[in-house]
Design a protein around this nucleic acid. Sequence first.
DNA 1: AACAAATACTTGGACGTCAAAGTATTTGGA
DNA 2: TCCAAATACTTTGACGTCCAAGTATTTGTT
Lengths: 164, 164
Amino acid sequence: MTLEFDPIEEAAANWRSAGWGAIDAMTAATSITRAHQILSGRIDAALAPLGLNFSRFEVLALLSFTREGKLPLGKVGDRLQVHPASVTNTVDRLEADGYVRREPHPSDRRTTLAVLTAKGRSRAERGAAALADIEFGVAGMGARARAETDQAILELRSAAGDFV
Amino acid sequence: MTLEFDPIEEAAANWRSAGWGAIDAMTAATSITRAHQILSGRIDAALAPLGLNFSRFEVLALLSFTREGKLPLGKVGDRLQVHPASVTNTVDRLEADGYVRREPHPSDRRTTLAVLTAKGRSRAERGAAALADIEFGVAGMGARARAETDQAILELRSAAGDFV
DNA sequence: AACAAATACTTGGACGTCAAAGTATTTGGA
DNA sequence: TCCAAATACTTTGACGTCCAAGTATTTGTT
């Protein structure tokens, strides 16, 4: 719903009046939270007709980028930075829909491989096209704004120890 | 876990190799998604000792900013931009903990007011201090990066029709 | 005044995320 | 070689979000 004032700007004013600290951090965190809500809603809506959502699409896309279309489940979790239990859940759903198969690892009995099926590869490509069509849910944000967001968040991701 | 490469940068390269479009939008969306995951994890961890999480803290903070510490549930949802069912759930939890009370609206029988208790007000203040202490989960992101993020996401929020 | 449409909130259900715990397997150190 | 520690994945449970549907009330139109 459309408000007649910017709720984040008002929150900043309220926060200031209350004498609470870290206003710039508060607006940044709240902005990111709202942006995520907007874009994930848009992305999931765009993928729904394909029977996918962002999480499931990301697994398909990741597998499609590998040479043989397969990866250990743990690697999937590492690359997508999600919890192992979430990987299990996501792969369960994809397997149920025939987009992915589970295979034992050839030499490590602890490990399971997620293997992209032809149906899954095709679905990944259609999902990619659908997402490009809606600009990944960030339509309305200019090219410069996107680049600045990338750079700004790179600082946060780096500080959080995402990569060296 | 720390990877030896930036997963978003690698995704961009993969996406490009696959000939898929809207790479700049993809990295922006994925960056925001990751940033949200980082900051919400940090925020909820900081609030957990107070028996709160971000959603519940936000309701307490919003109520504390009003003149009488009370708002209709629907207004809470509008201001915080969350679904009515989520407001119900959040207020249920806060009421159970004694931070908020429900009151009928004086003249509109459809409407329920969420009323901040003294205990809730005190908890809001402690939560605010805890969040300021961790810079709202965006520690590691400089002041300029925060401002740029705000501005960039303002474009998205505006385009999404959040306010006029 | 009567009635349809809109509004307000709740309930029930689905869902994806994460934590904790558990089992099986592999690795590394003594 | 043996065993403790680490690794890999799954299961269970809790939780917050949103959708859809439902009930009660208010508003707007005729």
